[in-house]
Write a protein that binds this DNA or RNA. Sequence first.
DNA 1: GTACTAAGATTGTCTTAGCCC
DNA 2: GGGCTAAGACAATCTTAGTAC
Lengths: 83, 83
Amino acid sequence: MVPNRLRAARTAAKLTQEKLGVLVGIDESTARSRISQYENGIYRPDFDTACRMARILDIPECYLFTVDDDFAAAILELYHQRK
Amino acid sequence: MVPNRLRAARTAAKLTQEKLGVLVGIDESTARSRISQYENGIYRPDFDTACRMARILDIPECYLFTVDDDFAAAILELYHQRK
DNA sequence: GTACTAAGATTGTCTTAGCCC
DNA sequence: GGGCTAAGACAATCTTAGTAC
């Protein structure tokens, strides 16, 4: 997962790290720590967790795995066109 | 990573599991085992390995992380349009 | 030759318990 | 409140060695 994509999508959704973590099913005692580790590139979530985050943030899961910024933007467009 | 996406892209590229593994920098003594484990969903590669595989297979890395088949096809189209 | 798998070795993430602003 | 991080606990992957077709 690309750490910056997660942070960008979370702040766009106006959620705190803890709120996002709890919404995807992480225990509230560890949600803050884990999301922070993901956004700072210390650790990577497993694919299922990434998919749940994408669902909450209303983005396609593959957006979180796109390195190129322009291609990432194009994917978001494609996603909203199809909704 | 979605195991079937990797297998589909590898067979489309007409590579054996071992050949793909070696091309992405995995030692030839373990390449066969690891790619097999990835394609059968036993283990998941780390993101860097997935990106190197995508590069060899000429697909966007995010294609390997797209669950929906139709959206995956659309991403491939988008990728080839932009090349 | 090609693909698959069990199990110990290895490397990763997760939780806990704090910290700073 | 919101975000970040060190370190031990824990769970994942990787390598080895071998099987099956």
